[in-house]
């Protein structure tokens, strides 16, 4: 029903912009990952050297594995905090549901930096927590391991991404037809059985979406490790960022970035397929 001119007018500008400023840059990064550096100059000779270097060097693999381990822990904790919260709000919050829901959303909107900074002031050697511990005479000297550790990264990112994880879970719980829950109870299932056999399976798509959010966002994070991580909390994106900084190692950095990209897209693709399988309608 629409004319050719109308169709062109609405599809060409975004298509052109996105191709120029999104597709071309991503492609440029992909190309860089096959190029090499000679005498501080990027040479456009194609090779798999950068990737070979990544596989051969234990440092990169080790940091990648550590990043995935941190991301896995953040995902687990975000689910452990976010799922029961979503379940409580969806099924048991009664008339306060709307207010409580808004209360979960507000921290989601609070600047990433503000939340990261807040944890830095809490966990630091002369921070709030250490002040409290000494005030209560639990410790005599500041506990230093709180800040600048993988623990601090996991804690901070769990705090930042729990509302993100909560959202899709809550959405899928809200979409469960309540008469299914009633039917389960009418047929004699205990609340526990109703949860495990009706509610939980039906909320799997939201659970997966939330878990993917937490994992992917954590895996690509490089700010929290700088803010609260210290040397032991360095993650894979920090290596990319360092390579792009003073070292001028764009090709190698690009190769790592491409690996992260492939990992992320692979994960998204996989969870999307599983989600689709679990979605009944």
């Amino acid at each position: 029903m629409y004319s050719r001119a109308y169709k062109l007018a609405i599809s060409l500008p975004p298509l052109a912009w996105v191709t120029l400023f999104l597709l071309a840059p991503y492609a440029l990064m992909f190309m860089h990952s096959f190029w090499t550096v000679q005498d501080n100059q990027i040479v456009h000779t194609w090779s798999l050297n950068n990737y070979a270097k990544l596989v051969a060097s234990p440092v990169y693999v080790q940091v990648l594995l550590r990043s995935m381990w941190i991301a896995a822990r953040v995902t687990l904790f975000a689910l452990l905090l976010g799922y029961p919260l979503a379940y409580f709000l969806s099924f048991h919050a009664g008339p306060r549901k709307e207010l409580l829901y808004q209360l979960v959303i507000v921290p989601l909107w609070v600047s990433y930096l503000v939340r990261g900074y807040a944890w830095k002031t809490i966990l630091g050697g002369d921070g709030v927590l250490n002040g409290l511990l000494q005030f209560l005479h639990i410790t005599q000297h500041p506990v230093e391991f709180l800040l600048y550790s993988p623990f601090a990264v996991v804690l901070t990112l769990t705090h930042i991404y729990t509302p993100f994880t909560f959202l899709p879970i809550y959405a899928s719980l809200e979409h469960i037809p309540r008469n299914l829950v009633e039917a389960s109870q009418d047929l004699g299932a205990s609340p526990r059985a109703t949860f495990w056999r009706v509610i939980l399976p039906l909320s799997v798509p939201g659970l997966l979406a939330g878990a993917t959010f937490a994992f992917v966002l954590t895996l690509g994070d490089f700010l929290a490790p700088i803010l609260v991580g210290g040397p032991g909390g360095t993650m894979i994106s920090n290596i990319v960022q360092t390579l792009f900084g003073a070292a001028y190692q764009w090709p190698l950095g690009s190769a790592i970035a491409v690996c992260i990209l492939v990992l992320v897209l692979g994960l998204l693709f996989a969870t999307e397929r599983v989600e689709r399988k679990w979605t009944f309608s």
Partner: peptide, 21 residues
């Protein structure tokens, strides 16, 4: 998918790609 990519990709990838560009 391309339009929505920056929504889900880590910011560092979008940022660095644009920096190179």
């Amino acid at each position: 998918r391309l339009v929505l990519l920056p929504l889900i990709l880590p910011g560092i990838i979008t940022g660095l790609s644009l920096l190179m560009f």
